[in-house]
Amino acid sequence: MSDAMLYALAGAMLAGCGTYGLLTAGGALGRILGFNILGGGVFLIFGAVARRGAGAGLAADPVPQALVITGIVVAFCATALAVALLLRLKAADGAGEEEP
């Protein structure tokens, strides 16, 4: 059981937490957090895959790591857009809560 696999399992646990957040969140903020944590879990699995792919003098496969960096930035953009929407919604009708 290499350390990469441990973090992959941690990633799976994060995905579980993220799914729980997405399923049970009443408001938009909970869902944003759930999405981020689920994304974090997926990226962690990708990091473990990269670590398992070490070789040719590199401690880890650089391609997944580059993809994860791009993914994190994209996930941040999504969070920022969602929060901007949430703030505007809060300003527009006073209560931040909404029913789907």
């Binding site: 869902r31 999405f35 969602a82 929407l85 949430l86 505007r88 919604l89 909404e98």
Partner: peptide
């Protein structure tokens, strides 16, 4: 519209 956009964004992200 904002509510619809929020639901769209969150589900699309999921």
């Amino acid at each position: 519209q904002l509510r619809a956009a929020m639901t769209y964004l969150m589900f699309a992200l999921f």
